[in-house]
Design a protein around this nucleic acid. Structure first.
Lengths: 241, 241
DNA sequence: AGAATAGTGTCTCTCAGACAGTATACC
DNA sequence: GGTATACTGTCTGAGAGACACTATTCT
């Protein structure tokens, strides 16, 4: 039998397949709070419960899992170029009452002022919620576990990469950026260490423009065009004394 | 409509689902070589080509994706308690000629002397192959890409964790362990730095027994019972000068 | 003694942490 | 001047890298 013949006779329904979904944790930092996007479900199961952004993989529409994640994300936030990272996949029979499901988990970083919320089909409401609050709510499916995994990943990355810059839009001062890091980590960072790292990472450039506020103006920076996130070889302290 | 009614009427075939598989890279170190397990396919597609260990998720047999990975791994290697880590999932229409597929990728670390190879159903041969060789072969599906991802992950983890201890069985000397790290990384490590790190990681304990060889005997160590891998806060140099 | 491998002493270098000190704005 | 925020100087400490030195075995 040739490969062609084999494929012609191949029966995709011979094997019972799990359903396949993508769920994303959309992070933003606003008012010194790390927040995530929650969607109020307007359909069964878990009708009326808050959930993460997610949906089924559509094999006709999506070219890849990343594409599914981006599609859902754009639908709900209106933002199309987030930092998006796959975290893991979870599969099992008990996670969804409809049966065996595989869900691939992503997290995205979106600058707060780029958000344009839209609950979308099958949902009645969408809101940004602080991490503390979200972890205290009863979320749909195993979304609390998912949230915890993403949170852990983001916090770890804040310790050894420049990733959180993706929560900033346009020009920003180093103090503003440091505040973002501190919000994510949940503790303060030594200003000197932070500036040394960021300026040494070769990923930022001065804009030449100063941020004029009520006190001493600060230099503003922007992400250098075309640079990938910088990985430091030494971590920041993870728990502050 | 209640949740019960909804579930009763739920039609799982309403949505066309991708097929779902698990593929694993089985690493071992033998004779100063980092090797991976390759399986010769005896079925279409890619008949006669070498591939990674993998198979479809069986929703009746497997409780989770990890379970699928373990099941396949045990079938092919006879080893049932490897270090197993999920790396990522890849989904797309073009990766498998049979159609849209999601494959969740794992890598496993197995001590060489624990291997007990068995090609299994649908395969005619199984062998450990050095990384260099495997990367030069024409592998089935996108398994070369998958291999590269796992290799990158393993090498990175060798820079900041104690993970490669899982390639050792029973008692081992620090020199033996260092050799494993060096083989993975592809370059030598300063002996002093290596011992400082390992002994400082609090994950090893002296067995009290010496390894008697042809020269000066060396203390043997074992993994402390119940410890999780240690994460260092500073990386080893990744490229040796 | 010589060879080979195990293991230590100790110096340098880098970079995070700590914190005081200086700079520049507004009031 | 006072206060708030921006930014720098500089010391300490941890730990990686480098490499010489010592220790213990066998031949």
């Amino acid at each position: 039998m040739t490969e062609k013949e084999f494929l012609k006779n191949y029966d995709p329904s011979a094997f019972e397949r799990p359903s396949t979904a993508v769920d994303s944790v959309i992070f933003t930092v606003y008012q010194e709070e790390l927040q995530v996007l929650l969607i109020k479900r307007d359909e069964l199961p878990f009708h009326g419960k808050w959930s993460l952004v997610g949906g089924y993989v559509n094999i006709h529409q999506d070219d890849s899992l990343d594409a599914t994640a981006l599609r859902k994300l754009e639908e709900k936030t209106g933002f199309s170029s987030p930092y998006l990272e796959q975290v893991m996949s979870i599969g099992g029979k008990e996670r969804d009452p409809r049966g065996w499901t595989i869900s691939t988990i992503y997290y995205a970083l979106i600058p707060h002022d780029a958000l344009n919320l839209n609950p979308g089909k099958g949902a009645s409401d969408a809101k940004m919620t602080s991490i503390a609050e979200a972890l205290n709510m009863e979320l749909a499916f195993d979304h609390k576990t998912v949230l915890k995994h993403c949170l852990e990943r983001l916090r770890n990355k804040a310790l050894y990469t420049t990733l959180p810059v993706h929560l900033m839009r346009g020009n920003f001062t180093l103090s503003e950026l440091q505040s973002i890091f501190e919000t994510i980590l949940g503790h303060t960072i030594q200003q000197k260490s932070f500036r040394r790292r960021m300026l040494g990472s070769e990923t930022l450039e001065e804009t030449g423009e100063m941020r004029e506020t009520t006190r001493r103006p600060a230099m503003t920076y922007r992400l250098k065009a075309g640079v990938s996130p910088h990985y430091f070889t030494r971590n920041l302290e993870s728990v502050h004394l």
